[in-house]
Design a protein around this nucleic acid. Structure first.
Lengths: 343, 343
DNA sequence: GTGAAAGCGCTAACAG
DNA sequence: CTGTTAGCGCTTTCAC
């Protein structure tokens, strides 16, 4: 019933296979009445062209892959990746691309990912979340000439296209805000410093302190790994150094840190202020609600797909490099509201 | 470089295309030394068969689709769907299937979903989240003879395969637990009662009360829609009826409800106890931590893929119906811990 | 065991 | 404008 071919439709409409193909692809060279007749048959039979065949003939599948590397699976407790995926999926809908999802989870998956992803004609291109793995994968993709775009700024690799938010600028803005509010001992709980995001946000923190005349106190810098637990642990370590404000590299870490601060008997935000990073669903849950940096995640996903398609259509050279702007969202956790009332 | 074909490999190995194909598919009828030679060439050249071609020849793509209907996109703030997706993706990895993700977001997407998903030879089967849309889609899939499995118990449709958790039994268990703890006025904030999940959990609540001799008070039943906001609003409505415990149909609603209770000056869990549903990442965030029903989500996703593959391999008749067990996780929000200490 | 040849369903020159 | 024909890269009878 649904297993019709172009040939079947052609027979039913009394034309040749090519004509039907032209109609399907809205090629201009078809007489109006013929087109109408064919369209009717298609309508009545519910014919849809077989994608595998079309892909084979055209060397184009209108399907792209999203690869989320290992580190990520544990990140699924953080809403970042779901939202990113959602944004990308929506963009794919708009461009009528199909999205293949590749979650690289075990070291085994890591081994099998390249073959699964590289089969020519199957995927037109790839969105690759930067992270733990990838370097060898990237090399292979480059030599295989497969269009791809890195999500996040890659570590070392240089001749590739990527899209990222401007983490340095964002962290700089967040910390500047705290400085402006008069905090003197601003700490940070960083993201994993084996990741570019973690590094960039830390750099923004340092840059703000230095440029604005606060000295950097090493005891005010502790490393986390983007998990709530690491936020909690990080805050416990910071306690001794008596910070009056903490810039956390993610909201979920901020939530962990706030727990720890409260457990230590501190009042929020009076005794200690917090700023997070992400502003996905989590930021409004804690009490006080988090001041944070909003990720432009929907636009990010959309732009990523757009650029990947550009890479596919117009070639991968020169590499595209995109940095997107963020926005600071001021709520109660930074103490700004109280201060404004008091002053 | 990576654009090798079977033919190329054949030439390099000095054999015919068929032989290489046999080697690639580990067909027995190949002499050992020939096989070895061919394998070497494959190794050296990094050849991978073109999936589109193979799909066309075999009428099998080893790719399945996951369709999440409209209602879901707003649900992405709830960790349920991300986790489900993750579980399914991992299962796909294990079975070496590729996962296509279809987020049906706008009414427009709803229109285009069938053609995108039905193209024969492109997807071997479909996982369909039950929800708002779907009835017409389901009909079309049935007549098109495409293997699919509904995630969640479908409303009306009857001759289809589905997998769900046993929501009635789970809610029954949760409410029974509250009864056992001695609560007298147990309320519920339901999920959307236009969804089977919402209905089933409500039914479990009612069943427990009735079977265990508590009368059902209509003022203790309010309807939510699985969002935090609806939890908050629901609790505000319940306040007048003075419940001493509330069974919420999801953790995120429980969090909203707890906020509302606290805003009304109630102490948790002393003045009012809460039980949620899901036990994904959210349950341990609030203070007190949530007693809840744990969704066996990883097993669920895995089982879903397994059954879909069974449907693909062994035919879609008879329809498979699976209900999975849940587990109650007791934390502080239900008051069980205090009670045990006091008694 | 191995190769030749047909065919999966579609697109795209190429003739007419 | 329309039909014929030759692939796209792989699997799979069918001979040998």
């Amino acid at each position: 019933m649904a297993d019709l071919t172009l040939e079947d439709v052609a027979k039913l409409a009394g034309v040749s296979r090519s004509t039907v193909s032209r109609v399907v692809n809205s090629h201009p060279n078809v007489k109006d009445d013929v087109r109408k007749r064919v369209l009717e048959v298609i309508q009545n039979t519910g014919f849809h062209p077989n994608l595998a065949a079309r892909t084979l003939a055209l060397q184009r599948s209108w399907m792209i892959g999203l690869v989320l590397p290992r580190s990520v699976s544990s990140f699924f407790s953080d809403p970042y990746f779901p939202r990113l995926t959602q944004g990308i999926a929506q963009a794919c809908n708009q461009f009528t691309y199909t999205l293949g999802l590749f979650l690289v989870d075990t070291p085994e998956d890591e081994q099998t990912i390249y073959p699964r992803v590289s089969r020519r004609g199957f995927l037109d291109g790839l969105l690759l979340q930067s992270g733990q793995i990838g370097e060898q994968l990237i090399d292979r993709l480059v030599t295989a000439n497969i269009p791809f775009l890195i999500l996040g700024r890659p570590h070392h690799t240089d001749h590739v296209s990527y899209i990222d938010v401007d983490n340095v600028a964002a962290a700089y803005e967040a910390v500047s805000h705290l400085i402006r509010l008069g905090y003197q001992r601003i700490a940070t709980i960083t993201g994993g410093t084996n990741t570019t995001v973690g590094l960039d946000r830390k750099q923004g923190y340092l840059k703000a302190l230095i440029e604005q005349g606060q000295s950097v106190d090493e005891t005010l810098v502790v490393e986390g790994d983007f998990t709530e637990a690491s936020g909690y642990a990080g805050m416990r370590k910071l306690l001794a150094a008596k910070p009056d404000a903490v810039f956390c590299a993610s909201d979920i870490m901020a939530i962990g840190a706030m727990h720890a601060a409260r457990d230590a008997g501190l009042r929020l935000p009076d005794d200690i202020a917090f700023v997070g990073f992400d502003d996905l669903s989590l930021a409004t849950l804690p009490e006080p609600r988090l001041t944070t940096i909003r990720q432009p995640i929907y636009r990010f996903g959309f732009k990523a797909v757009e650029i990947l398609i550009d890479l596919i259509d117009h070639g991968i050279q020169p590499p595209r490099r995109i940095l997107m702007d963020t926005e600071m969202i001021i709520r109660e956790s930074c103490g700004a509201k109280q201060k404004m009332v008091i002053e």
